[in-house]
Nucleic acid binder design. Structure first.
Lengths: 349, 349
DNA sequence: CTGTTAGCGCCTTCAG
DNA sequence: CTGAAGGCGCTAACAG
């Protein structure tokens, strides 16, 4: 029924092995022979059987990309960049690799499930993006999985995620969330703000914790007390930002600034402030984090920290493909850049 | 080195066949035996070899999801919805399927390449999302590919994409882009607008053409002449919207409304208008399309057509999994809903 | 440079 | 309900 490599070999009057060599291009084959094989492939409209070749070679062309939320541009941008480096030539079987994006939805179980699925597929590499869940049991389980993947020859790269235990052999490109958070709050402090609300992401996430730590470090550095009531946790979405802002306003109507865990949350915060009749930045300043494409279009444009998502993703992709050396020690920290725009100003009064 | 099914069988003191049956759960096995096998699997930390099982069974657990631009929430939202229906139980081998998102970047070649890769992997299903490229050669190539995929047992579903030729056996969930486009322009006409600029998407895309056709149908229905100079094509991104708007303003400073191909483009249009010192909607009204999450946060909030991306994606996912019957004739048209918000008003003067 | 020979690890009839 | 046996399609040593 389906044409196999043997059919091609017969038509081209060579052995199956030769066809395989032509297809994988990793072995010297006479030009005329290659020509003949390629023609046969074409005439028969032959398509290599991936599973069979993966089985025989004990490795596949799959590269897994795990993201917390594919509907969030933060991950979409990174995933696109990673994939753009993976699609190219360099793999086995015709030089094409299949970059597959897996959406964990932020769920630890799904993350583990996908890792197992990828392990089962004998993936060539796996890239984990974004913040990790900070649950000891889960962190251990993930580390164990990564260890096994690495043992099985799968390259493991972390992108925008803190380093895994050293014995997992994972390369890590980490974002300096702490530093960015600190810069943002310091910017507000310099403008004169003292009463700032903080909308944090979900608890037990590294991203959440690091950004919050940066904020607190800035407060501490300037001797500003940190009132726990001025910090609210929520998901990384617009709605959470909206609701958290109303809650903060209820707790402390005199806030002069709102620091959001990311741009999406900041957008929700802006909406809540407007709906509460407050002007930005005249009454309340707002800052986000990430500098997603829409942030510059907010009115007023959002002050935020730009993360080089695309660049980081591309680098991660190259490392995953083995096309670029892993950095010394396997860890790179990528800094963000403070983008001061219209959403922040001096506090009123 | 690596643990195989045979190892598990030995440890559980059963035959490999029995282990296979337990793992796939598609065959009666005595409870006590199953128990024993499962324990052995656990103790040995056995992970099924995907390629081997795909080879033997002539089908894999992969489900491909093709998107034009994963960084665009339009696709991200659909992809997330599709994947959420795929991850669940129902597949072979432990009931898990691997939903893989492939980013074509809108390139016909990459689309074909991914389709081949998926064919090579013997994917269980493939979901193609978003507008198709309207190039005859390419359309034919894709149709041929889909035909072959279907012949090989791969289920093919189109989501937010016009139906493929009937003989491809592809189920299609189509968005009523024409109707939505017409409603939007009709809304503007009813407000009193007569001079409307149109920012279309890339040429040779079904989405672009259909939305534009809707716009023109509305103009025609009201006897409003359609000046070709008032239509500009560009990519589906913010920047294209920004530049196209400046161009339209240059060509016709007296425009009272700008119709954008989608929300992202509309956002760019708003920015350009603001930068040109024009107020929205007092000087110029703006409408988008899709109703992405950020659209309600624009200032003023964007008038647009809401597409049920999540619902459509979920349905497509279920059909792809064979968990839901394909509709009669294999085609469903999903209508959008006009969302009138602050970005549109009566024209000045 | 090319053909031959063994499997890769699993599923699936076919018996029992 | 369970075991035995053959083969899925390809690759990777070996010889030549």
């Amino acid at each position: 029924m389906t044409v196999t490599l043997a059919d091609v070999a017969a038509r081209a009057q060579v052995s199956p092995a030769t066809v395989s060599r032509v297809l994988n291009g990793n072995y010297p084959v006479a030009a005329t022979t290659r020509e003949r094989v390629l023609r046969a492939v074409d005439e028969l409209d032959y398509v290599l059987n991936g599973p069979a070749s993966a089985l025989a070679a004990a490795t596949s062309d799959l590269v897994g990309i795990l993201v917390n939320d594919i509907a969030d541009p933060f991950f979409g941008i990174m995933a696109a960049a990673i994939q753009s480096e993976i699609g190219g030539p360099g793999g086995r079987a015709g030089g094409e690799r299949l970059g597959v994006v897996c959406n964990t939805g932020g769920s630890p179980e799904r993350e583990l499930t996908y890792l197992t699925l990828l392990q089962r597929q004998r993936a060539a590499a796996v890239v984990l993006t974004g913040g990790a869940v900070e649950n000891t049991a889960h962190a251990t389980a993930v580390a164990t999985k990564l260890r096994k993947l690495a043992d099985a020859g799968t390259r493991v790269v972390l992108c925008g995620r803190p380093p895994a235990p050293a014995d997992t052999d994972a390369v890590a490109l980490t974002f300096d969330n702490r530093g960015g958070g600190q810069e943002l709050t310091e910017h507000l402090i310099e403008l004169g703000h003292r009463r700032m609300g903080y909308i944090a992401g979900p608890e037990e996430r590294t991203t959440t914790r690091h950004r919050l730590e940066g904020h607190r470090a800035a407060l501490a550095a300037h001797g500003i007390p940190d009132d726990p009531a001025w910090t609210v946790h929520g998901r990384y979405d617009r709605r959470a930002g909206y609701e958290a802002t109303l809650e903060l306003l209820r707790r402390e109507p005199s806030l002069t600034a709102v620091v959001a865990a990311n741009d999406t949350v900041a957008l929700g915060a802006c909406a809540a402030l407007r709906d509460s009749g407050l002007r930005i930045p005249d009454d309340v300043s707002v800052v986000g984090f990430d500098d997603l494409p829409f942030s510059v279009d907010a009115v007023p444009a959002l002050t935020t920290v730009r993360l080089p998502l695309s660049e980081a993703g591309a680098l991660a992709g190259r490392v995953a493909m083995g096309r670029e050396e892993a950095p010394e020690g396997g860890i790179v920290t990528v800094r963000g850049e403070l983008m001061v725009r219209g959403s922040t100003g001096v506090p009123k009064g």
